[in-house]
Amino acid sequence: MTLRTKFVLALAATLVLAALPWFAPPTLVQFGIATLLLATLAQGWNIIGGFTGYASFGNSVFFGLGSYGTAIAMVQWQLPFGVGLAFGVLLSVLFALVMGIPVLRLRGHYFAIATLALSQVMTAIVSNLEIAGRNIGLVLPLLNGDALFYELSLAVLVLATLTIFWISRSRFGFGLIAIRENEDAAASMGIDTTRYKVLAFALAGIFSALAGGIHAYWITFIDPVSAFDLSLNVKMIIMTVFGGPGSVLGPVIGAFVLSAISETLSTEVSSVASLFFGMVIVAAVIFMPRGLADLIRRFRKTGWRYFSENVRSHRL
């Protein structure tokens, strides 16, 4: 497939998705909002985890800061939603810059652990802030308009995906990939690795915060535990890895497919849904460890051997 046909297909898919609220039932639109926001979060993780190779557990902090920034601006200062969203993004970017500079010096497991700790700390801090409603949380003004939230979520996802498309073909992106592949070598080739990593972290922060802000206004209630929920970060990782880390569309497809599987399972076999979901993840990791994007790329050449080769090469 040439880039042109890919682009046309993606555009057609986006238009179909954009038209969805006009003919789909409300429950599907609500499912759509949740899925689009998850896909946006997965794309955010893709920048720092997929391209740069830094397994971040701090992306749920960006989501939480986006939620709280929007909520504080709207509830405490009576500002419009747009300003709130911008405030959430600002908080998130500041966090990425201030925490990124020390934390991004750590590599591998140490980086994961440090970001994990940060997200726990944030819950504790926010629970004690008067302006954030302490551990009770904040109630946002009600806005009935799922279609609007849906279109907004779609727009943010498109923006995130276009940004990643740009990254994948830019010098900046090559720099990030070089850092993922061999950070010492990247540094010896004159790449300012710290600057690149912090920028990637901040970029991930922007999209995660946008998703957080939209989610907060849509759900109309936020509290510290759910806003900084670590399992959301785990979802971002699973969806990105399932779809194909470091690819442009992989995380989006991963988020769509996994959300659909998870939703179907919970309606069909509600009590054991998470058991089956877990099995899907395990099977995916064994049979296609490099994600859907790699599967699609290589399946045509290798056929069903693709799966057996993956199993063999990872000695499972």
Binding site: A178, E181, N182, A185, S188, M189, G190, I191
Partner: peptide, 30 residues
Amino acid sequence: FKLGIVQVPEGRQLFDQMTVLENLMMGAFA
């Protein structure tokens, strides 16, 4: 590095997953 002091690091430090051409092009990154 921009002044032209370039290292061939100990242990080679190549980008193993990239092709030879991509590795060479990384040298011209700046």
